[in-house]
Amino acid sequence: MADRKALVVDDEFHIVQVVAIKLKNNGFEVLTTDNGASAYTLAAQHKPDIIITDYQMPVLTGLELIEKLRSDQQTAAIPVIMLTARGFAIEDQQKQKLNIAACLSKPFSPREVLQTVEEVLKQTVHA
């Protein structure tokens, strides 16, 4: 049984799948969903150690999801990594305000995702 749990959220099935496989192959238990609203429900229910979310998604966008997570005491502390295909980076101010651990641009490397996840979790443990 994996001792680390990750939630992967993206409306692109193939993206969710590839990130999930990479994490599973490296010892994570992975939950997946394709929209922000169900991601929040899953996060509240399962309390994952980390969330990897897309920026642009139906129902709730990535930023709206994080805002919702931060406003709930149960989910406020979960570190979040954001994947975005948008041509612009998320402003530092917003990143700080929402406590976004890292932003990765699409196209991304699954290796890089895994490495970032490990680093963020390490920082979280030490914090």
Binding site: E12, H14, I15, V18, I21, A85, R86, G87, R111
Partner: peptide, 21 residues
């Protein structure tokens, strides 16, 4: 430009990620 880049990057992200896998 923003839409095109987003739309192009999405399949490209899959191609890149699965090739690396």
């Amino acid at each position: 430009v923003s839409h095109v880049s987003h739309e192009l990057k999405t399949p490209l992200a899959s191609i890149n990620a699965y090739a690396e896998m």
